[in-house]
Computed example of a mutant assay.
Amino acid sequence: MHFITQFSQAWVALLVTMALVLSPIAIADESRLKISVGGFYSTSDSGMDVTSPLTDKEFELDFETDLELVESEFLPFIEIAYWFNDQHGIYFDWKRLHRDATNKNITVPYEFEHPDPDIDETYSIQLGAEITTTFNVDIARIGYGYDFYTDDRWDLIFTAGLHVMWLELGFEGEIGACLDETCGIIDIDPDSVVFTDVTAPLPDLGLLAHYQFADSWSITGHAQYFYIKIDNIKGELIDLSGGIEYNFEGKFAADLSYKYYKVTADIDGDYTTTSIHYGFHGPMLTLSYEF
């Protein structure tokens, strides 16, 4: 119920923000709509801090190496932008980062606290256990773009907007629970631990650059940053890309770029902090059409 309530509040806030952005510039002479779809083939790096039952020391559990989540995969992307005139516009985009895998023979035992601070439980994964891991991140973004510099070659656009991030981290399989300070292990039922959360709308700032160096050819660049601090979650996102765009005759364009993306989140509990990170880098292809 807490997750559903936060979900509803987040989208209500996004819709209110869109209305506020639209109201000052609702009438324009040269409006245009641009739809972009594409994907990127990413090399991922993700993990979380856990405790070793052998040494009682913290270490980083690598989701790709230790839990066999796919390291390289294709991720979808969609963006819709509406420009009221040459300088003012709004945009919405969405990224889907979903993965799951089953490791039938855990080689690194570990213990971890439930990320939800309202659940005071410690779980244990033993050597040889079979564990299915799910790690899903969805990020939706809405914002305002201002084209503050334009000439025959350059377009520089300042962006300010909001993000909402949905997070799901799940472990299913041969999982034990620690009942006392010596961590005596018992089987749990159901044999799964799932943490889901959604952040409230979070502010972000960015800069888009477009440089046309020849007929139909341009260099593109993008940089964006936002910081998370909501309830028991804090962290940051860094989003960078650079590439080259070809504009076909008409309003159709293709952009091939290289993207770097990193999300970190610290989830504070009563006795410990669960640190989760996710990042990827790789080539991205975007096709766009302007109406």
Score class of each variant (00 low, 15 high):
Asp62Leu: 05
Thr264Ala: 09
Ala253Gly: 06
Lys234Val: 03
Gly170Trp: 04
Phe40Glu: 09
Phe280Leu: 12
Val16Cys: 11
Asp29Phe: 14
Ile230Arg: 08
Asp45Ala: 10
Leu208Cys: 02
Lys251Ile: 10
Asp255Ile: 02
Tyr289Ser: 08
Ile228Met: 08
Trp83Asp: 12
Gly128Leu: 03
Asp120Leu: 10
Ala26Arg: 11
Ile80Glu: 07
Thr272Asp: 15
Gln212Val: 12
Glu181Thr: 13
Phe226Trp: 13
Asp151Tyr: 01
Leu14Ile: 15
Phe148Tyr: 13
Asp116Gly: 02
Asp66Asn: 11
Ile80Ser: 13
Glu64Pro: 04
Ile185Met: 03
Leu97Glu: 07
Asp29Tyr: 12
Ser31Cys: 10
Asp255Phe: 01
Gly89Gln: 01
Tyr278Pro: 04
Asp197Lys: 05
Gly143Arg: 08
Tyr82Asp: 05
Leu22Ile: 12
Lys259Cys: 02
Asn103Glu: 10
Asp239His: 04
Asp151Ala: 06
Ile125Lys: 07
Ile90Gln: 06
His2Ser: 14
Tyr278Leu: 10
Val37Ile: 13
Leu156Thr: 02
Thr220Gly: 06
Ser23Asn: 13
Asp239Gln: 02
Arg96Pro: 00
Glu121Asn: 08
Gly184Gln: 14
Asn105Ile: 04
Asp180Gln: 03
Ile131Trp: 00
Ser72Asn: 13
Leu156Gln: 04
Arg99Val: 04
Asp151Asn: 14
Leu167Pro: 00
Ala265Gly: 12
Asp255Thr: 09
Ala265Phe: 07
Ile228Asn: 01
Leu15Arg: 11
Asp66Glu: 07
